[in-house]
Design a binder for these strands. Sequence first.
DNA 1: CCGCATAGCCC
DNA 2: GTACGGGCTATGCGGG
Length: 598
Amino acid sequence: MLIDNDEKYLAMLDRLRTGPPLMVYDLETSGLDPFRGDRLIGVAILIPDMSGETPGETFYIPFRHLAGTNLPIDRLYWLAPFLADPQRSLVGFNLKFDVHSTEIERIPVFNRHMDVMLAAHLANENELSFALKHLGTKYLESSAADAESELMQKIKKKVKELGGSTASAKLKGEMRVLPPEHVAPYAEQDVYLTWQLARFYQEVLTKQGLLHLWPEVNAYSETITAMERRGVLIDPERCKRNLEYAKQRQEELYGQMRQIVGKDFNPNSVPQLREILKQKKTDRDTLIKLAQLKNPIAPLLLEYRAWVKVAGTYYEEFLKLMDDSYRIHPNLNLIGTISSRLSCSRPNLQALPRGTDVYRVRDLVIAPPGYVLVSFDWNQAELRLLAHYTKDEFLLDAYRHQKDIHQETADRIGITRTQAKRTNFSIVYGVGKIGLAEELGISVPEAAQLLERYHAMLPGIRKLYSTSEQIATRNRQIPMWTGRLRHYREEDPTHRAMSHLIQGGVAEMARIALTKLHRRLEGTRAYQILQIHDEILFEVPIGQEIEIVKAIKAIMEDYPFDVPIVAEGKIGYSWGNMKPIDFRDGEPVIPKLERENV
DNA sequence: CCGCATAGCCC
DNA sequence: GTACGGGCTATGCGGG
């Protein structure tokens, strides 16, 4: 039903008040970037019929269409009491987006999330697409996909009439060119579809014994939403300076290369570089070899590439993505991986260079006035989880007595500590002799020998590898320590099962820690702002460091494993410049920080 | 405009 | 006999 006057609106609100404490909620917006200007244009709501006799009632409330009749935007606030109630639930599809778009309108959302997209990912992380229409047509015999394309045709036509662009990427943003009565059926279809899928997945998750995890990932979604909303603060002046310098260095380096080559060329073109360098590949390893052979272009190109990377991927992107208070709000994707890790995009803050000189990118992430940044990361989370599973005496003993695991490994196998460290990491990924040979820069037979000695020392690892694979092969799934499943289709290889068990297990540790921390930090002025798999970044008010840091450490070390889990903290005014926090008898010693001046 | 290849950043 | 786990982005280039 299209809500086109106050009377109908009030009647709908009455249904909300007297109905069940949940509604399906889906916004139509002018675009996909709520933090940078895209705005809500209408709200679709489904009020379920809990008796199940009817699918429920659907409504569409238009606020910012460019044609037809809207309700005045201040009527949006009539929904506020229904969104600010933690006793109520919001059923949706990728709720983070709808919540951001709502909160941008200064309407805080405290409803519990019930995100059907997350249910779909729990039930089967292998889906080709997690789009609502895709899942709808796949599982519901629905014609939603057709309805959608019809609507797109309408929009295209309308935009053409108005003489606008018909670029398909802009279509979503042009939905507002249509009058509400054309959009309402489509929007109502979406909430209907969402509700049907909610019921479908409730059943699927129940059958798989996973239903108890849905509220957990929904709580995670709430904390991730808060993190995205807070975002991370960028030093804009420094970012601009760095960008200018990077551009200038690119110019200089191209000039020098141009001199040597003797004619114009595109230093970004791999085919041209292959020609110039007379090499099949032009990657870093190749260039380093060439540089050692005194090729004059190779070192210049290496540095050139670094500046291109840093300028294009980070500096320019940060300036583009900053909101007007210099914060960027990355997309922390809850369904971006098969292992249940988060992925991150726009920008990918999980892949900021940690390096020095050219790559001083983390310096740009700074604490706001009155705050410091605090970072905690787990000490060798994967290996500790591996130790928990394998029960290898060597690992258990080393971790229980706080020995240097890499040094111990090195001593036992007769290699350097660096080699041992790399081997330990590679083992978690399930590498073979070829991969390890590559990693360590040794021959394949040498790597094979090394692996033999390694597995002789740690027999549990090879065993875990094969039992994981057996379980995955037989059951086509393997449970993490939380019960979350990694599923394997008939055609999927299962040799990565151990790797999934460990990587997924650590991801589950992170999920649980972040969810607990979100609750713990409520009411303080400290915020979690980023998760980088085994690291969490916080903004902590100056003066509260001791209390907050203790709470973080306690939560990040609270796991039911046979080995202790250890989290180590750092603190600083920028992410690129942190000092360790010492713990003496459980009491943190906050190091003295200097504001660095550049 | 899109998909693929190559290169390169992270845990 | 085999086999390095999981991500995102920029750029060029050739297809339509």
